[in-house]
Design a protein around this nucleic acid. Structure first.
Ligand code: FES
Ligand code: FES
Lengths: 143, 143
DNA sequence: AAAATAAAAGAGTTTTTTGTCTTTTATTGC
DNA sequence: GCAATAAAAGACAAAAAACTCTTTTATTTT
């Protein structure tokens, strides 16, 4: 569904949101540990998200990653788009070069419906909204 | 969503179903042309599906691929499972090693709902059911 | 200013996926 | 039996995705 990169990205950002809910920063090392991902790999990913302004970072001691007010309110869809592009939201389920109403593949209508529901779900969920569940250990970011 | 291999596979099998609706066989060359896929690649894929009994084939002149009564009734889900395994149907949306009700990722509930709808859709659609739309040029297997 | 810290950047490597080419095997029609 | 046809099989090759390692840059603390 999503690329591994994208899965790590979302887990990482949710983790950062939780860890920094009352200010502070969190280091790459801690993120990697917190979501059980390869450290250098998640570093690259966060670097990219940082360039795109979807996460904030600071160098040096006391540095690390955090989310500003705007980032906390970004939807999951924004992060998916930043990493995987919009093929998830608009790509053809059977791999036609382009999904089209007027030149549809055989499963277009059914597929589109599900794809849209996925999109609505991702658009309406903001990255900062999972803190409570994580605190209550009703949701997890690693095995 | 699906691997390229799986996308080609489904398009190929739908094509075979259509082309052989009144008996006959269809060659790899024709399949490749019909769905606009690399010829040798789709050959490999059909070989695999043939081994698993999801499509039928015959060598030699008058040979080619076709679908027996049972294969025509297989669901899209059966083909997806044969190629991509069941990660589509039961994998965690955020890449946790295993999707679990008791150790869920933050988007488990929402994701599961969509994943299930996808599954129901794929389970309830049989590969042989697209002939009419294709004939009427209301659906297409290539650009 | 120097040392320590932590992200940024860049240059790999490995693995998986996707795609190609060649040879072999089976079947048919003559 | 022989030539032609078409899939099966196997070995490669290219591209993309996933992952690693090393060096640089910015910041803070002492
Ligand atoms: S054309 Fe295939 S999903 Fe729209
Ligand atoms: S645990 Fe992530 S989808 Fe079920």
């Amino acid at each position: 569904m999503f690329s591994k990169t994208c899965e790590y990205a979302i887990r990482a950002v949710i983790f950062i949101a939780q860890q920094t809910r009352e200010g502070g920063r969190v280091s790459i090392k801690d993120v990697a540990r917190g979501i059980n991902s390869p450290e250098h790999f998640i570093a690259k990913i966060l670097q990219e998200l940082s360039r795109k302004g979807l996460v904030q970072s600071a160098k040096g001691p006391t540095g690390g990653f955090y989310l500003d007010h705007a980032s906390l309110q970004q939807s999951l869809a924004d992060f998916v788009r930043a990493i995987d592009g919009d093929r998830v939201f608009s790509g053809c389920g059977l791999g036609l070069k382009q999904c089209s109403e007027s030149h549809p593949c055989p499963i277009h209508h059914q597929f589109k419906s599900i794809r849209n529901q996925l999109m609505v779900m991702l658009e309406s969920t903001q990255i900062g909204g999972f803190t409570r569940e994580l605190e209550a250990k009703m949701a997890f970011l690693k095995q």
